[in-house]
């Protein structure tokens, strides 16, 4: 039987999911999704703080997936050049007036442990401590050797989130690890 779109749509609606993307993630692809999100946030009459927070969490999560997804492919441009892409899922929803962004991607076991340790630590800090830690890490440089980015994206996510970052690391049937992250941003801005 073919994929049941109607059932899928019901699942999305029942769970307050408004946008779903599943597939390759690459730099200019993120730009396209970012434009869509920016336009959407512009149409919704919410404080700049809240829309900036939603946008910032989106950007950092997409960049994290681009860097750390263990499922990678090459996309070939028309001129024959190749660019690296990652596979992942991005979900945006609104529940009881709060935005939520969920992402999912396969990770290596070493990255899973780094993510677990970092998020657990960040969740112990309050907003003021997060701001100080962010600045400290900006100056200290990059303590994660596998990171191509600034390695501070997760701190930024924690700063913008209204609640502690939720995550799960599940073992798939084929033995690889699947990392999901759930970030909530209340429209009133930060707590």
């Amino acid at each position: 039987m073919s994929f049941n779109v109607q059932l899928y749509n019901k699942m999305l609606t029942d769970n307050n999911v408004e946008v779903v993307y599943s597939g390759p993630i690459w730099s200019s692809g993120i730009d396209g999704m970012a434009e869509m999100l920016l336009k959407r946030l512009e149409y919704e009459d919410i404080p700049l703080n809240a829309s900036q927070s939603v946008f910032s969490v989106f950007v950092e999560q997409m960049n994290n997936m681009l860097m750390y997804s263990a499922e990678r492919h090459f996309l070939t441009n028309l001129d024959g050049t190749q660019i690296s892409s990652s596979k992942g899922i991005y979900i945006l929803g609104v529940k009881e007036g709060a935005y939520f962004i969920q992402t999912g991607n396969v990770v290596t076991s070493s990255n899973a442990e780094i993510l677990r340790a970092r998020i657990d630590f960040l969740n112990t800090l309050d907003k003021k401590e997060l701001r100080q830690y962010y600045k400290q890490q900006l100056i200290a440089g990059n303590d994660n050797p596998v990171s191509k980015g600034a390695g501070i994206g997760l701190i930024e996510i924690a700063r913008r989130a209204s609640e502690p970052i939720k995550y799960e690391i599940d073992k798939l049937d084929n033995g690889s690890l699947y990392f999901t992250m759930h970030v909530i941003i209340k429209q009133g801005g930060k707590q």
Binding site: Q52, F55, S56, V59, E60, N63, L138, I139, G149, A150, I152, G153, I155, E156
Partner: peptide, 12 residues
Amino acid sequence: SYFNSSTTKLLL
């Protein structure tokens, strides 16, 4: 008006 964490580091 907005920059991500990598840009923040670069700008600093």
